[in-house]
């Protein structure tokens, strides 16, 4: 009985999600799910997933990264928070021009766990110690430089109502694990994840005030 309890506890420890160190914007989306079932976000990796990933790394090396890709550029759907809420408390309908900017900065987002860190910030953000170069082969990027675009929408808001503009979309996820070696000694290990936003869709809903 005692052995069984110990085994169950051990199993639960192995399945417990591991704390992430890097929080990217896509992790704050209301929901994000894979188009096909068996894939996981890095934030849902268990110790078992990590250990299985590490077991697939080739042997130690004198200096540099060993990486293993678990999810390779797999499509995901997501739902983000409401982009805009426009209120009209007046007695007549109003016409509103809404302008917002989209940028390349938000189309490629990184997250990491363990002691894999980031270097740079904004559009130049990357994984530390050149991990990008080892995993970028599995990531399909949609552009080659910084893009910022202005989006203009013209909208009518009826009297005593508010409009919610919601955002849905599609992206791609690549993730895996990695270990960094110095003089054959493992100095860093953890998980990495890259989210590439490909398309955003909008929905508009009206609500009475």
């Amino acid at each position: 009985m005692k052995k069984a309890i110990i085994l169950v506890l051990l199993f639960m420890t192995l399945l417990a999600p591991v704390q992430e160190v890097g929080a990217a914007e896509y992790l704050t989306y209301q929901s994000i799910h894979f188009q096909r079932g068996s894939h996981k976000l890095l934030s849902n990796f268990t110790n078992y997933d990590y250990n299985r990933g590490y077991a697939r790394l080739s042997g130690r090396r004198f200096w540099g990264w060993r990486t293993h890709t678990i999810t390779d550029n797999v499509p995901v759907y997501f739902k983000r928070d409401t982009l805009f809420i426009i209120k009209n408390e007046g007695e007549t309908p109003i016409h509103q021009n809404i302008q917002f900017k989209t940028s390349e900065q938000s189309t490629k987002q990184l997250s990491a766990s363990g002691n894999i860190g980031f270097s740079g910030s904004g559009e130049a953000k990357g994984f530390q110690l050149g991990l990008d170069a080892h995993v970028s082969g599995s990531v399909e990027t949609t552009s080659t430089s910084y893009i910022e675009e202005t989006i203009d929408i013209r909208i009518q808001v009826d009297s005593m109502t508010q409009l919610h503009i919601g955002v849905y979309g599609e992206g791609r996820i690549s993730n895996g694990v990695g270990r960094y070696y110095r003089f054959f000694k493992n100095t860093r290990s953890g998980g990495w994840e890259i989210f590439t936003l490909t398309t955003e869709y909008y929905s508009i809903e009206k609500e009475a005030l």
Partner: peptide
Amino acid sequence: MFEDFLFINTNRFA
């Protein structure tokens, strides 16, 4: 009439 519904933001050249 609903004047303007932008439903998608994507790279049309892709």
